[in-house]
């Protein structure tokens, strides 16, 4: 059932359009988006402050880093893998960038060093998984701990707060019109990688590798290369998030990014990614992060105990994924 059947588009009756819109209920991203709008509407019933530009942009900026990382994560998950090391890659990248600024390097060199951290993480994860054959969970659990340990060793637990040029802080603190720069970066990355996943040969190979690795390999897909690539992308994107995060607060904490892998995986799962591989989308993951972000904001605005936020997020994950599983059971499962 193609939603956009080229020939029929010209002579669509209103009924046909409604029918097509109704078909959209099968698209996971649309469902999560609707859920988010409902939650937003409920919150705005309680407090008029929710729908102000100021608040909304704050909400967007707050979840933008999680959303950016979830873009890399969802590609890993679609291959049937998992990347637990994104929080450490993010934190270590922000720390290395901070240390480079502290040592007097230029903005370009410092950012470059931060990105290099991501590349090293991705290369290590990818090679452990493809060349040695470690399960992704174990490989990235190991690099998670190594990365975090290195951060504590280097900082001895003390935050690093170097002098930075004003221009650098625009990355985390600046605006394009009313929109914060991190949100702009998030949107650009989302569109870029959504197109890569849906329209390019590489994207198709990512889905095929996760859908049935053996069949993909026997069809000529270089599955190991595909896996290496997604882990490199995931870590590199995470290091980018780390650099943006550092630019926002201009201080690198040894605990920065700690535990964020769970938020990132949650965003991907809420957005429809299946941990069994083969299923998931970049836009879904970003919308998943947005839903969690809106709920977090609502909890603050409605004066609910902030500790409850984590519990609510957990509930959202379970509800979202349960609905998906049940729907697949009912419709005979396509995905």
């Amino acid at each position: 059932m193609s939603v956009s059947d080229n020939k029929a588009t010209l002579e669509k009756s209103p009924a046909r359009i409604w029918h097509d819109l109704y078909q959209l209920r099968h698209v996971r991203e649309v469902n999560v988006l609707i859920a988010m709008l409902i939650v937003g509407a409920l919150i705005s019933l309680w407090t008029p402050y929710f729908l102000t530009t100021n608040n909304l942009m704050g909400v967007f900026r707050a979840f933008s880093l999680t959303a950016i990382m979830s873009i890399g994560m969802v590609m890993v998950i679609v291959t049937g893998g998992i990347d637990l090391s994104v929080g450490s890659a993010m934190g270590l990248a922000s720390l290395v960038t901070a240390l480079c600024f502290g040592a007097g390097y230029s903005t370009g060199a410092s950012i470059g060093a931060g990105v290099a951290v991501g590349i090293v993480f991705g290369l290590s994860n990818g090679l452990l998984i493809t060349a040695i054959g470690l399960p992704p969970f174990i490989a990235t659990l190991g690099t998670l701990s190594i990365g975090r340990g290195m951060m504590y060793m280097v900082t001895r637990g003390v935050p690093v707060t170097p002098e930075t040029p004003d221009a650098f802080s625009l990355l985390g603190q600046g605006y394009v019109g009313p929109v914060p720069v991190p949100v702009v970066i998030m949107l650009i990355l989302m569109v870029l990688f959504a197109l890569i996943m849906k329209r390019t040969r590489f994207g198709r190979h990512v889905y095929a590798t996760g859908g049935n690795e053996q069949a993909a390999r026997l069809s000529g897909v270089k599955t190991n290369r595909v896996k290496l690539a997604v882990y490199m992308l995931s870590s590199t994107i995470a290091s980018l998030a780390g650099i943006i995060g550092f630019s926002r607060y201009l201080t690198a904490e040894p605990a920065s990014g700690f535990g964020s892998e769970l938020d990132v995986i949650a965003a991907a799962a809420i957005g429809g990614a299946s941990l069994a591989g083969g299923v998931g989308s970049v836009t879904g993951a970003v919308i998943g992060a947005a839903l969690v972000g809106v709920i977090a904001n609502g909890v603050v605005l409605l004066n609910i105990n902030t500790y409850a936020q984590q519990a609510i997020t957990g509930g959202v994950i379970l509800i979202a994924v349960s609905l998906d599983v049940l729907r697949n059971k009912l419709t005979g499962g396509n995905g």
Binding site: R204, H205, G211, N212, A215, G335
Partner: peptide, 20 residues
């Protein structure tokens, strides 16, 4: 097990060997 990606469409399975 080895010939098809069952979760993908006929088109996507068909072109996998010669997508280029």
């Amino acid at each position: 097990e080895m010939g098809l990606v069952l979760g993908m469409s006929v088109r996507e399975n068909f072109s996998l060997t010669h997508l280029s």
